[in-house]
């Protein structure tokens, strides 16, 4: 095409998309501690919305998926089903110790974690609970990974 116009348009779309990250939050049996901190990261004091983040209600609109909780028996199938609905490319971020290891619940009959048994985890944020700044750092790291993923899809 003339002057590589199609490539330039794709680049411009990618650039715009990297500044508009829609978050989707899945609670896989969390105690609500990490959920509160995710919401706190969106408040004016920490303001993840500066990075273009917006909490969305549908997995089909998500760019970054935040998972909290140790993946309970009841939430396992729902987690897998919800993650299957997220369009590629997306970034999976685990918030807190629970989705990484099971934390104090590990070894329980009702825990099917960690999350990386089911899906590739891009970024983990450790802490019980992590501070909103740490969640922000995780989101920023995920944004960089997502940009690479998007570039890789076009090549």
């Amino acid at each position: 095409m003339l002057f590589n116009l199609d490539k330039k348009i794709t680049e411009a779309i990618d650039d715009a998309a990297s500044k508009s990250l829609w978050l989707y939050h899945i609670n896989a049996g969390s105690c609500n501690g990490c959920d509160i901190e995710i919401v706190a990261a969106l408040t004016p004091r920490y303001d993840a919305e500066r990075l273009g983040c917006k909490l969305t209600g549908s997995p089909r609109q998500a760019d970054i998926v935040l998972v909290s909780g140790p993946v309970t028996l009841q939430s396992r199938d729902r987690l897998i089903r919800t993650l299957a609905q997220v369009p590629e490319p997306y970034c999976l971020v685990t918030v807190g110790s629970c989705p990484c290891s099971g934390n104090v619940f590990k070894g329980s009959y009702a825990i099917c974690g960690p999350v990386d048994k089911y899906r590739h985890v891009d970024v983990s944020v450790a802490g019980c609970t992590p501070k909103p700044e740490a969640i922000m750092a995780g989101i920023a790291q995920a944004a960089a990974i997502l940009k690479e993923k998007r570039r890789g899809m076009h090549e």
Binding site: C100, D122, V123, S124, V125, A126, G127, P130, K131, E133, A134, A137, G138, Q141, I145
Partner: peptide, 12 residues
């Protein structure tokens, strides 16, 4: 130090 984010298990 609370900034604990990483990609692989060795980061933690």
């Amino acid at each position: 130090d609370y900034m604990m984010t990483g990609i692989i298990a060795e980061d933690f």
